[in-house]
């Protein structure tokens, strides 16, 4: 009796997975995911058996959850150093290179940390101290986020 709802949900899920596979840039993926959710919600409203607004909100939340989850996975695929280590090891095993992956990985980690240090200042989380010592200190915005994150760390590292 609710086949249309299930069919539409399945169709949305498949479309989102195709978008995830084809659209590699996070920003474009967000845009395509948002378009899909809007199309899905409008279609639900007009043709499905689910008419109450709260049901449509629930369905749309499911869509947004999938989009945000896949977005995190995409960012992880782009940035993860451990995944890079795995790729590096695979390439070296295939090429039968016997040099240590540790050196190459340390090099990559150092450059990645350098980028994050730049981000820290560019995003306004930290700034150079005024005494000219070249040290970094947290801005008020950075301090608020740091407090929140350290609380979360305490919760997950227990």
């Amino acid at each position: 009796m609710y086949y249309i709802d299930d069919f539409l949900a399945l169709l949305f899920g498949i479309s989102l997975l195709i978008a995830f596979w084809k659209v590699r840039t996070p920003l474009f993926f967000i845009a395509s995911g948002a378009c899909l959710t809007i199309i899905y919600s409008i279609t639900l409203f007009f043709i499905s058996e689910t008419k109450p607004v709260q049901d449509i909100i629930f369905y749309s939340m499911a869509c947004l959850g999938c989009i945000s989850g896949l977005l995190f996975i995409r960012v992880m695929l782009i940035r993860s150093i451990s995944l890079h280590a795995l790729k590096l090891s695979n390439t070296m095993t295939k090429n039968k290179k016997e040099c240590s992956i540790e050196d190459q990985l340390t090099e990559q980690m150092t450059s990645e940390i350098g980028f994050r240090l730049d981000d820290l200042q560019q995003k306004g989380f930290a700034t150079l101290t005024t005494d000219g010592s070249g040290q970094l200190t947290l801005t008020p915005k950075g301090r608020v986020i740091a407090q929140l994150v350290s609380r979360l760390y305490r919760a997950i590292e227990r």
């Binding site: 869509c63 945000s68 960012v75």
Partner: peptide
Amino acid sequence: GYFLTWFGIRSHLESSILLKMLTTLQ
């Protein structure tokens, strides 16, 4: 969606370089 979001946030928390640096600077 819920699992993927939780997984993403949780693993981002434990491996994010930027967040680790923020707490170090605290």
